[in-house]
Every structure is written in C-alpha cells, then in structure tokens.
Design a protein around this nucleic acid. Structure first.
Lengths: 244, 244
DNA sequence: TCAAAAGTGTTTGGATTACACCCATGG
DNA sequence: CCATGGGTGTAATCCAAACACTTTTGA
C-alpha cells in the first residue's frame, strides 16, 4: 500500500447492472446472453468496461442502462449496489466490477434497446434457486440485489418505481406482495400509504381496469423515505460484513 | 460497452479505509498525513493500491486495516462502504477507490502499527464542518461513512464494536449518544438492550469504575441484528441514488 | 450519611393488527 | 341486482416514551 511502490496491476474495471422490474406477477431481472467465451451462451448481467478515462462510474451506469433499455432515466431509480473483485471471477484477467441496482417499471416497449444482443427478463426466483445458471459470480450479485431491493421497499417509496406513471393503491400493494412474497392486509396498507405525507399524489382520475368499484389513480409524490416504515413479517436480512 | 472493444483504460484500483472509533467522548476517524504530492501534508484516509493481481478486495482491506492498526481483526467490523470513481479525483491518473468502513474499539495501544506514517484520530465533526481539510474527495467519503455508521446503530448490534471486550450498559449507551449526538433515556435503553435476545451476555462480573453502584459487565452476544430497532429521533437519512 | 450511578416498575399514548362493513361500477 | 374489487371504521394489542423510585457502592 505504500504509494512509493507504483506497481499498478493490470486490472479492468467493469460496470454491471442489476435491473429489476415487476412483470407477470414476478420480480424479474434483465439478463443478456453471452456471445463469447468464457461462459458463452450463459445468461449474465448487462454491463461492460469503462469506455474511457474521463467517464464517471455513475455516468457509465446510466449509459449502460440507457443502451439496454432505452427508457427515460427519470422514471428509473439507479444506485450503486456493491463492488465485486475476487481475483478469479474472470479467467481472462483481473476484473473488478462496480455493480449498480436499478428499479424500473414494466416496459410496454420492446425490451432491448439499440444493442443487438438478446435481452431477456428472467424471474429472480429461477436465478436464486439455480434453475437458471448465470455466468461468473452473477448469481451472488443477483442475490445481493434482491435482498437490497426487498429491504429498500420497507423504508423508502421506491416501490413506485416498479409502477407505471399512474397507478392505483392496489397495484402498488401488489408490487410489495410480489417482491416480498407475502400478502399484506389491503385496508391497513391503503391507510398507511395514503396517510404518509408526500408519498402519493392523487391525479383525480379513476380507473376500472381491475373491475369493480373505480380506483383512484396516483402518481409518485416528492417523499422518498417512508416513515414509519412498512415492515416485512418473516425474513430478517443477514448482516453484511465479514467476521460474525 | 461491447466486449469486443478490448480497450482497457489505465485505471488504478485503490482500497481506502474509513476506520471509526469512539474516544474522548467523540466519534473519531483514523487519518494519515500525506507525505507526497498531490495534497502533500493534508490528512487523508489510509489506504493504498491493490498489491497484486491475486489479492481479493476484502483481503486487501483487511491487510490495510491490520497494517494501520495492528489490532485483532476479530474485534473489528469491516464492510464495504462504496466505490468512488470520479475521473478527476486524482490528478495523476484515473483512480477508482473501493472504500471500506470499519468499527473498532478505542485502542489503548499506540495507534499506528508497523507503518511509519503518522496516523491520527480526528473527530469526524471537524472533518464534516470543514475545520480539517482532507485530501481528494475524502471529506465526502467520511460523510458517507458517518451516515452509514449512524444508520447501522439503529438496527444492528454494531455499537458493541466500539466498546472494549467487556463493557457496561451505560458505556454502550454513551456510544449511541456520542455517535448520534443526542441523549437517550437510560431506563428505556437498559430495558431494551438487555431484553433483546442474544445481544449481550452477562459475564457475572461487576465494575465500579464509573463510581456509584456497581454495574454488570457484558460481552457481545451472538445476535447481530437488533429487533426491534433503536430509532433516532431527529435526523432522517437522505435517500442515496440519483434522480429524486 | 451523603453523593453518584445502576437498575426496576408504571403509566400513557401512538401505532399496528385483525377484524366487518359500505360504496361504486360492469355486466 | 349481483358479483367484484375499492375504500373506511373500530377495538385489542403491542411497543415506546416519559416518568419516580430503590439499590449499592465509595468517600
């Protein structure tokens, strides 16, 4: 670590994306099929290497996200997840990956953007239980991303990022139920989320797309943190960090 | 970002440490004085470049920590904080820093380990309010580290990492009060922390080092998460991530 | 015997839960 | 008019905040 030892190992820096959405009643993640070795033909997180020396990490993540999805970035939440740098995670050379986590609504448009590679939405459950085998250490990254997402729904309003621009309270509740894998009391959820100042903004409009009595349509409010939090019942997250 | 473009920019990867402790009734961070340009003479976070291509990031952080403090790592909590990679954060070349956060007890031993550089404990307040000017973007990193630490005390038992191997309930409460900058009700805190299964283990021994009635000495228990949490009253953390 | 700090009990209010019921629409 | 889902009300319970008092030592 002495700076006088100016040996800079040849390390490549990559930026990978864990892009989550809720579609078809499941939490799904965006994956691409690898066209080259190693792990050719396997699914992997979208991402790539830093393009030039002047590109900021956050900017690189935004660029990747725009390339993969073509979506308006204002409707997407993007944050840094973690950096992965095991020496043997890529057989070709040392690669350190700065991984970002994104929440986005289900796309009505075609899922892949300008890039030619096949981008597929995959339920995270099939990744976590091993039915879908991912390249490199990406399964572990997906596990970290899902745990972060589940945790963030408790104390932030980020669940709205999985919804279309206008949505009903029930649609928002379904997001929670799908991500957490548990059912929530409809009445308590409604009172809590509408009672949180700045969480939702009523548009005045209504919809009957679910059938039954018309439901009020809401947009995201300015509030980002949810206080008091909506807590999961079952799973307690495991503490990250080494040594106990 | 296509992988065929095998242009790997010359980027150096560093691992920096934000080592926090509680001493002299203040939350303090370990800093070193820089001996070379740029920022010669300024205080900076301890850290350095990856030593070789086979070193894991976590292992590099542990190595740095051992070098700086010489402390038994079992008594230290170490976790990844965030990665910083603005293109102009180091004028010499592109440097991406993977930063780690450490909690450790106040050292009775001399604070610097084998390394010759001067390591100094500095109150985080003097860093955050600008009285102490740090090199590079390290002030922002310190701000992130402190916010993470304050937040983690709410829902984990990591405050015990700031305490000696055996400590009293009041000493643990003082850690909370110092890190959060607010006072806690002694009785409610005592009932809550001793009532949390697995948080503390009574040693049976007592101490009168604070004067007054003898206090029971405790060790850290196996529990890592604190449920229910001990919540701060005042400050709500700001949501990380870009766009709103 | 007095000061100083540790430890315990109680009350009260707020929030969460677990309920049952009414409302508004489409068919 | 009836099935379907949206929205509101209410009582019991748990948790946490705010409080006063007793206990045990050193001086």
């Amino acid at each position: 670590m002495a700076e006088s030892g100016w040996r800079i190992p040849e390390v490549a820096i990559a930026v990978d994306l864990a892009v989550l959405t809720v579609r078809e009643d499941a939490l799904q993640i965006l994956l691409v099929e690898r066209g080259i070795e190693p792990w050719q033909g396997f699914l992997a997180l979208p991402g790539g290497f830093l393009e030039d020396n002047r590109e900021d990490l956050d900017a690189a993540a935004e660029r990747e996200l725009a390339e993969e999805t073509g979506l308006d970035l204002r409707r997407v939440h993007l944050e840094q997840l973690r950096t992965y740098g095991s020496p043997d995670r890529d057989p070709r050379r040392r690669v350190v990956t700065v991984c970002y986590l994104a929440f986005m609504p289900d796309l009505p448009a075609p899922e892949a953007g300008g890039d030619a590679r096949a981008a597929v939405w995959t339920p995270v459950d099939s990744v976590l239980d091993g039915r879908a085998e991912l390249a490199f250490d990406h399964r572990r990254i997906v596990a970290d991303a899902v745990e972060r997402a589940r945790s963030k729904l408790e104390y932030t309003t980020l669940a709205t990022r999985f919804c279309p621009p206008e949505f009903t309270v029930t649609e928002l509740r379904r997001v929670y139920e799908i991500v957490w894998g548990e059912t929530l009391d409809q009445r308590n959820f409604h009172r809590k989320i509408t009672g949180t100042e700045g969480a939702l903004i009523s548009t005045g409009a209504q919809t009957t797309r679910q059938g039954g009595r018309p439901a009020t349509l809401y947009r995201c409010g300015p509030a980002t943190i949810l206080h008091p939090a909506i807590l999961r019942t079952a799973t307690q997250p495991t503490l990250q960090g080494h040594h106990a």
